[in-house]
């Protein structure tokens, strides 16, 4: 049965299990009823609350539920598929490989392991356990081994980033993981970690949010950050222009897939 049929069936019968299985959704993310036919939902997700622990580490919210009816939206379906693929990176430096694994599996319908991709990448000098991945090599596994279209951007604005997402690209960002974990600190920017930007949640105009798959945290699946914190971690502020700068983006797309199906 097609995913759209499963979605309709879930709406009618409240039988979510086949849909959950098809999406490879983990048990800690619920499929929720609604919106009803004809209704629209501003936000198709529910989140847990963000908090800061006793060590001053910021723990973002996390997606805990998806409205089944929203899965008729290809963008929500795409995000849900990527949530199902999230895994913790297996090595200290393997974030860029793990994020590519999520995307390749989600887009191509494969079930590759990080270990398999590390082997591929090590043989081509795109990754090593000792040094990780060079920024210019991020996405090369997806491009050169799995035929995905790849482009990289440096120092782009938020509008350009959102436009890439609108165009259906899967986005890998270089972020400063210290700034994600301790957003209250005023420290110089250094991108040292790769995450996947799943989508923006602009349903609350006063509090826009960004949803990430972060392979570097135990609870990194569907992490929900306030836009302000995300921007601080995604690039140094351009004081002259008074605008945030997204430091480094790798955009991936299934080749010849110009329009979302």
């Amino acid at each position: 049965m097609e995913l759209t049929q499963l979605t309709e069936a879930a709406e009618r019968t409240e039988q979510f299990e086949p849909l959950r299985e098809a999406l490879k959704l983990p048990e800690d993310i619920g499929l929720l009823e609604g919106p009803e036919a004809g209704e629209t939902s501003e936000c198709p997700f529910t989140y847990s609350e963000a908090y800061t622990d006793e060590n001053s580490i910021y723990h973002p919210g996390q997606i805990k539920g998806i409205c089944a009816g929203s899965l008729s939206d290809p963008r929500v379906r795409e995000l849900t598929g990527d949530l199902g693929q999230w895994q913790r990176q297996e090595r200290g430096m393997s974030c860029a490989v793990q994020v590519q694994r999520e995307i390749i599996n989600s887009v191509q319908g494969l079930e590759l392991t990080e270990s398999e991709l590390r082997t591929l990448a090590e043989a081509r000098d795109w990754y090593s356990d000792e040094t990780g991945t060079y920024a210019h090599d991020v996405g090369r596994i997806a491009e050169e081994c799995f035929g995905m279209e790849r482009s990289q951007y440096k120092g782009i604005g938020l509008e350009a980033l959102m436009a890439l997402k609108e165009q259906g690209y899967r986005l890998i960002l270089g972020v400063d993981h210290h700034r994600l974990a301790r957003p209250q600190l005023n420290r110089p920017f250094k991108a040292d970690h790769a995450v996947e930007l799943l989508d923006f949640d602009l349903s609350d105009k006063e509090n826009p949010k960004v949803i990430l798959n972060d392979p570097g945290r135990d609870e990194g699946r569907g992490s929900v950050y306030p836009l302000e914190i995300f921007l601080k971690a995604a690039g140094p502020a351009d004081r002259a222009a008074g605008k945030p700068v997204i430091h480094f983006v790798t955009a991936l797309k299934k080749e010849a897939d110009d329009e979302r199906q």
């Binding site: 991945t133 920017f189 250094k190 991108a191």
Partner: peptide, 25 residues
């Protein structure tokens, strides 16, 4: 400025080409 000086290590073309992304400096 100070930030630009710091960023030389990580955001300059040479810094990005020569050092993998996971390293702090």
């Amino acid at each position: 400025n100070g930030n630009e000086l710091y960023a030389l290590a990580s955001e300059s073309p040479a810094g990005q080409a020569c050092v993998p992304m996971n390293f702090q400096h």
